[in-house]
Nucleic acid binder design. Structure first.
Lengths: 314, 314
DNA sequence: GTCATCTATCACCTGAGCTGATAGGAGTCA
DNA sequence: TGACTCCTATCAGCTCAGGTGATAGATGAC
């Protein structure tokens, strides 16, 4: 650590900025309610510490040196950082969280999360938002172990585990396969027995998770993957079929890379997966987290297109 | 400005960080060569200023509060900014520039500039590099008016204007037209008269620039554009023909969107445009700028592929 | 030349923050 | 449980960084 770092003072930096803005030591003194000598003293102290002449005093009023102009920018950055810290502290003193951690299921439509984050940052500029992407019971895990106070989860878990659930929306899920896949060419509804003989790609959990339910598993052979992106990649590659949120496969369906499978016994309605907000009953989120939750609920109600992209598909 | 901002001290932030690292006030005092009471005093001062309890003192040793942990990160950021400022001041005190401004001709291969900037930032982490993109005599203008101490310019300007020139490399230039253009289908070398009747896209200057020479203007009708990107776009769109650096049109040539025109009177060799480094003789660049120049020269000599992409084209 | 206004520097003073001592609390170990 | 260790809070006392106000010299406007 160099000596300058040890001794430099925020006050000196504020002095530097103020003098640069006012264009004179005296004016800066007036604005800061300090004697002109104090300003002069402070600036020369800073110059001595940095080993650099910040102002050219040859004229009537001091004018920033070339290096002075450069270091002024650095001083501004330091003061900005201090200002941010102060704003955050101010918020925290008023009971606001400094960061909100949200566990988000990979099934969740990205558009929803993006809109949510945007609104949040606009409303709470001093609160950092941290998103943890997980799948299935992993969401509940992150909320239960305290990593996240809020989770956005698909339909897993049961009552009585200390979690409070709030229904958000229904996500349309569609069974799909690569257009080159055997099931894709099947004319009309595909009977259960036919599906059973094909490989199904299923999102699954590592060991140690809450029982993951296995709803919708039809095939005898399943491949388990840890996240939605991998599942989509495998299905795209034609390695099997599987159910994915409509939102995630819309583009692939439109461009013909994937085909929407019509399964015999599921009826014609798209499968709807419920999306829940979850939190621990004994440690509810703070003000910013509650605002986030409320905004999420209102968004799900008022803007269904965020949840299900365009509704024109079947 | 809130009161906390006014009174907060860098020393207090360093204290906070040190206590968090050491895990105890006493240990922090030992490391900082200060009495334990000073540390205790400083921390409680900071807490009072922020209106926040940073440490939980109920146990044997103080442990960071949740908000304390959040604000610790802010403190780190502030100290980082201070460290950067100090490093830059240190450099400036040793005669190093705080920023280097370079005027770069749009004709210049991006790969060269990228490699140059990368090497520069690695060598001078405290010096900001600012690139000003211009064309033709605009480069000399930026150097002459003092905005940039260094310029990388194509072949414009004359001697006796107070600029020092150093040859860097020859850039292969190729006359091209969109594949759908009338000239593109011409069998064998295209005679001058035939070229003359087509629109030529030429990079040109706004008023007030040094005379821009107009070398290589063959057609009777010319369209003038201000930058290479627009020129490329117009040629791609089939609005005319023009000469561009091989590097810039390589991909378009490979993919058949553009065609390399063989002009009768230019011979078979590719037209070579010289690239110069220019600077004012009376205000040479500082140490970092000189290093940049030297590195540029050595790169041009030792790595011709940076200047001319692959040489396999004709 | 006159004048207004700037900066540098001095003497002087005040208080923020340091030291060292002390009291009390929290863990640890026999 | 008691002894011991290591921690923190708090106090009195001191010191010097940084404040004030006055003054001298410089600079530019008129």
């Amino acid at each position: 650590m160099t000596p300058a770092v040890q001794a430099m003072t925020l006050d000196q930096l504020r002095l530097l900025v103020c003098v640069a803005e006012e264009g004179s030591f005296s004016a800066a003194g007036r604005r800061l309610n300090r004697a002109q000598s104090a300003v002069s003293y402070g600036i020369s102290n800073l110059e001595r510490l940095l080993g650099i002449q910040l102002f050219d005093r040859s004229g009537r009023r001091p004018v920033l040196t070339e290096t002075g102009r450069g270091l002024l920018a650095d001083a501004q950055q330091v003061l900005d950082a201090v200002g941010r810290m102060d704003a955050r502290a101010q918020g925290a003193a008023g009971g606001l969280e400094l960061e909100v951690n949200v566990a988000v299921d990979a099934i969740c439509p990205p558009a929803l999360i993006i809109a949510l984050g945007k609104a949040f940052q606009e409303r709470f500029s001093t609160v950092s938002l941290r998103l943890h992407s997980e799948v299935l019971a992993g969401i509940a895990g992150l909320v239960l172990d305290g990593t996240c106070r809020l989770g956005i989860s698909g339909p897993v878990g049961s009552e009585g585990d200390g979690l409070e659930r709030r229904f958000l929306a229904h996500l349309p899920m569609v069974p799909v396969a690569s257009t080159g896949h055997a099931l894709a060419g099947h004319p009309g509804p595909i009977p259960r027995a036919r599906v059973r003989s094909e490989v199904q790609i299923v999102i699954s959990q590592r060991a140690g998770a809450t029982r993951s339910g296995d709803h919708g598993v039809l095939s005898a052979t399943t491949w388990r993957v840890a996240d939605a992106a991998t599942k989509l990649a495998l299905i795209r590659a034609g390695l099997g079929w599987g159910t994915l949120p409509l939102d995630l496969v819309r583009e692939d369906l439109d461009q013909g890379r994937l085909t929407h499978l019509v399964l015999d016994h599921w009826g014609t309605d798209p499968l709807m997966a419920p999306l829940f907000a979850i939190m621990r009953a004994d440690s509810p989120p703070g003000p910013a987290g509650r605002w986030l939750l409320a905004h999420l609920e209102s968004m799900c109600q008022s803007c269904p297109e965020l949840v299900a992209a365009n509704e024109a598909e079947d």
